[in-house]
Design a protein around this nucleic acid. Structure first.
Lengths: 144, 144
DNA sequence: CTAGGACCTAGAGCCGGCTCTAGGGCAAGC
DNA sequence: GCTTGCCCTAGAGCCGGCTCTAGGTCCTAG
């Protein structure tokens, strides 16, 4: 069983994950670790698998999963194969939330892009034909 | 100039925008209003254009624009046509951030979906063929 | 006249997610 | 032996974005 534990210090892990040392300790305190970090003389020692787990955590965080949910997921992982269904359910619901979020963002983006286009138009008109400047276009705050 | 001011109370606006009365006052205090709300006997009075502006605000918020940025945008709108370029720049940079955010979410989603698939597989195997249960698949925390 | 309801202001409180401080330990190198 | 540097814990602080409270005004209906 090649558990490949390369023995990293908290500082090294911080560097590799992009998380701060503070945040790593904070995550641990918050129960985000599936395999509670081993210690040697009080110092935390991390292995490759911790890096991977942390990477997953960063992706879950980046996609808006709250810490309590990650903690729950970590707890399930810790409990082993019997929790596979629960983990599946948890990830599926996250998947749905992310999908919805992407759609929401796309709708917002469409609106923003529309306004950008209107502003571009306005600038173009403004420059090329002084006759059509001003009042007629004044605010497109409402025709969106 | 049909400025179509339908005279809405703060409560009505709250209802129509989905924002709370608290939040509306808060937004005003934060300077998110281009046309600082008119008052009659101390009470705020909103018009159609305020609804549209607020709608835009909710979309900008929903796409992660921070309040200070919206405030800035509002200030530019207030200053009129001379700020069109600045507004364009502001919206364009937001557009880019949102686009990037969508891409990020899509990458996260891909990862989550991969894990969902792995869990599904694991469940399927588990049910159909007891010989292949267990240790060989135990944790895919790392091959992601 | 009084009760209800919608509104007002100013300011406190809350929540999530970090981020930092204070105060200290230990090990290696000059 | 002392500095440097990385680590430790416990707990405070901060930031963004609301959300709520306290205490008050004003209008309308019963």
């Amino acid at each position: 069983m090649p558990r490949t534990s390369a023995s990293l210090s908290i500082g090294q892990v911080a560097e590799r994950t992009g998380l701060s040392v503070h945040t790593l300790r904070f995550y641990e305190k918050e129960g985000l670790f599936a395999n509670p970090v081993r210690r040697v003389g009080g110092h935390r020692v991390y292995g490759e698998s911790d890096l991977e787990w942390l990477y997953l955590c960063t992706r879950l965080r980046a996609s808006g999963m709250p810490l309590p949910a990650i903690r729950e997921y970590a707890a399930l992982v810790r409990e082993g194969k019997v929790t596979v269904q629960a983990r599946l359910a948890l990830l599926r619901s996250h998947q749905e939330r992310v999908t919805a979020q992407i759609e929401e963002l796309q709708r917002c983006l469409a609106l923003v892009s529309r306004k950008v286009a209107l502003y571009e138009e306005q600038l173009a008109d403004d420059g090329s034909d002084p006759l059509w400047t001003g009042s007629c276009l004044s605010e497109h705050e409402r025709q969106v």
